[in-house]
């Protein structure tokens, strides 16, 4: 006997993600989910943009999704902003942040006192793309040491992100990578993707990233 079911496998995650969007809308908070491979510069980029965004009087919170350690949360806490740390399991941590961990993390904040919350996802170009966090905007960071082909190898990630930040451009003199080809590959996957190029180390073009974020926050 056959029973027809037709239920989305990620329905529970997606429904909770919708509730997160409702919650952030009610409190006029913008959620930006930042994804990348490990070591592409998610935390470093946040360290660069947070003080500048603060200088524009934006009130910021960060949800840190690092596996096992609190190292990233400690780096961010220096800015005296609320940080909510999600630790996935030690020695076998989860590979992404689902909406079921974002919701409680978000509820720890006084949302009326915030304009913008960054979600620093787990470093991984596969799984995080699959799970809607409830964020209003998805960013992917790709550093130029990773090679030009990554957008083609991880198309879902580059499809779900409307903003692609090419990081570590200060390393260009030491690399053979052609940034033009990398940009072309990103646009091949997502023709409308907004591409920004910067160095979270030297600070080059960080102002462009900040301007872009300020437009998304709309305050």
């Amino acid at each position: 006997m056959k029973i027809q079911i037709v239920r989305d496998v990620l329905e529970a995650n997606d429904q909770l993600a919708d509730q997160i969007r409702e919650l952030s809308k009610t409190h006029h908070v913008t959620l930006i989910n930042i994804m990348s491979s490990p070591g592409s510069g998610k935390t470093s980029l946040l360290e660069q943009v947070i003080p500048v965004l603060q200088s524009y009087a934006l009130r910021i919170g960060v949800i840190e999704g690092d596996i096992t350690t609190t190292a990233d949360a400690e780096r961010i806490a220096r800015f005296e902003i609320p940080v909510s740390q999600i630790n996935t399991e030690p020695f076998g941590g989860d590979c992404h942040l689902g909406s079921e961990v974002i919701m409680p993390a978000l509820q720890q904040f006084d949302l009326n006192g915030l304009d913008l919350v960054f979600i620093e996802n787990v470093g991984n170009l596969v799984c995080p793309a699959e799970f809607d966090t409830g964020a209003n905007h998805n960013f992917v960071i790709i550093s130029i040491t990773e090679g030009e082909d990554k957008p083609l190898k991880y198309p879902l990630m580059f499809r779900v992100c409307n903003t692609a930040i090419i990081n570590k451009i200060d390393l260009q003199p030491y690399l053979e990578l052609d940034v033009g080809i990398l940009e072309k590959n990103i646009h091949q996957i997502h023709p409308d993707s907004r591409i920004l190029k910067c160095s979270a180390k030297s600070g080059e073009n960080i102002d462009q990233v900040v301007d872009h974020i300020r437009k998304l926050v709309n305050k």
């Binding site: 006997m1 056959k2 029973i3 027809q4 079911i5 496998v9 646009h187 023709p191």
Partner: peptide, 17 residues
């Protein structure tokens, strides 16, 4: 670049036997 994905995003339990 103005394309629309008609299928390929599915992920659902269709039926059980």
């Amino acid at each position: 670049a103005n394309i629309e994905i008609l299928s390929g995003n599915e992920l659902y339990v269709d039926s059980i036997e």
